[in-house]
């Protein structure tokens, strides 16, 4: 009876997770775990949900708990691999992904995850193999098609990329990855307004989407070099995790201070003053720039609407 109740809660959580309702999904799995705190599948499900909500610390703890309770389950290894990818532990992630792939019920999702790991490790050929294996299991798998399109575009094969993207969008017209790749294909073909529609679609779903912002920056760069450079700079600064941003800011601080100290000690008073002012200007800029960038993005997204046929 209890097991059945737990399974119902986990199924409901899965539905909520797919709908993007991470909070609802989390609460459902928490209720399942209140019934049985040693339920390995429930811990794995919770880890997956927390990963989606970008709660990496909690996801890591739950995935490891699940693995400690059941080290033979393919899904648990899949979740562990996904967590390790987020933690940038790619070798360990691949080891867990391999176990998930060798399991009796290897899913297309596990193949796509494996492909992502291989791309991050630089083995594009192996990634393509895994993506084709995912399509062999599910010919309309949107993520596999989007990744194949991305790889084809990177290789300069626009025709294949367009074919894969068309299939991905046919399978799921709202898929974010497919829209991003479609935007780049349009941009490469000189269709800036087409690319803009795809970027807007992605950014209207999530205004902070990194790939969507990068596409938007590329579109802006086509319109004006100066504005494009600023967009590119902001996108580049906001890319990656907090650790990268902090390292960039502290690196800039150290370089500026060394330059100020050296010029001052060498007696270049004028230059020191200019460097000091430039540094203070940069400090002020880092205070207001993110807000300015956010407002500009909101204005751009708010004033132009999607074509009715899009």
């Amino acid at each position: 009876m209890e097991e059945r109740q737990i399974n119902i809660l986990l199924e409901q959580a899965e539905v909520q997770r797919r709908l993007g309702n991470h909070r609802g999904a989390t609460e459902l799995v928490q209720r399942a775990l209140a019934l049985d705190p040693d339920h390995a599948q429930a811990h794995a499900s919770l880890a997956f949900t927390l990963l989606g909500a970008k709660r990496l610390a909690g996801a890591g703890i739950e995935a490891r708990l699940a693995l400690g309770l059941d080290a033979n389950d393919s899904f648990i290894h899949h979740v562990m691999a996904a967590v390790l990818v987020a933690e940038r532990e790619l070798d360990d992630a691949w080891a867990h992904c391999l176990i998930a792939l060798e399991g009796p019920a290897a899913t297309p999702e596990a193949h796509v995850l494996g492909a992502r790991i291989q791309i991050l490790q630089g083995d594009v050929a192996r990634a393509e193999e895994l993506l084709h294996e995912a399509l062999a299991l599910d010919a309309a798998h949107t993520a596999a098609l989007s990744w194949l399109a991305r790889l084809a575009l990177d290789a300069g094969d626009r025709t294949t990329a367009a074919r894969h993207v068309a299939l991905a969008l046919e399978s799921d017209p709202a898929d974010r990855d497919a829209h991003v790749v479609a935007g780049y294909i349009d941009l490469a073909s000189g269709d800036v307004s087409g690319a803009e529609q795809h970027a807007r679609f992605v950014l209207n779903q999530t205004a902070t989407d990194e790939d969507g912002l990068a596409l938007w920056a590329a579109i802006q760069a086509r319109r004006s070099r100066l504005l494009g450079a600023w967009w590119r700079w902001n996108t580049w600064m906001s890319r990656g995790d907090e650790r990268r941003r902090v390292a960039l800011l502290i690196g800039a601080f150290v370089l500026a201070q060394i330059a100020i100290i050296v010029t001052d000690e060498l007696g270049f008073e004028g230059l020191t003053r200019v460097l000091n002012l430039a540094w203070l200007g940069f400090c002020a800029y880092t205070w207001f720039a993110p807000e300015l960038f956010r407002r500009m993005l909101a204005r751009e997204l708010g004033t132009v609407h999607l074509d009715p046929d899009f």
Partner: peptide
């Protein structure tokens, strides 16, 4: 009754 996640305050 609910399960307490380790990252929750």
């Amino acid at each position: 009754m609910t399960y307490h996640i380790a990252d929750e305050p």
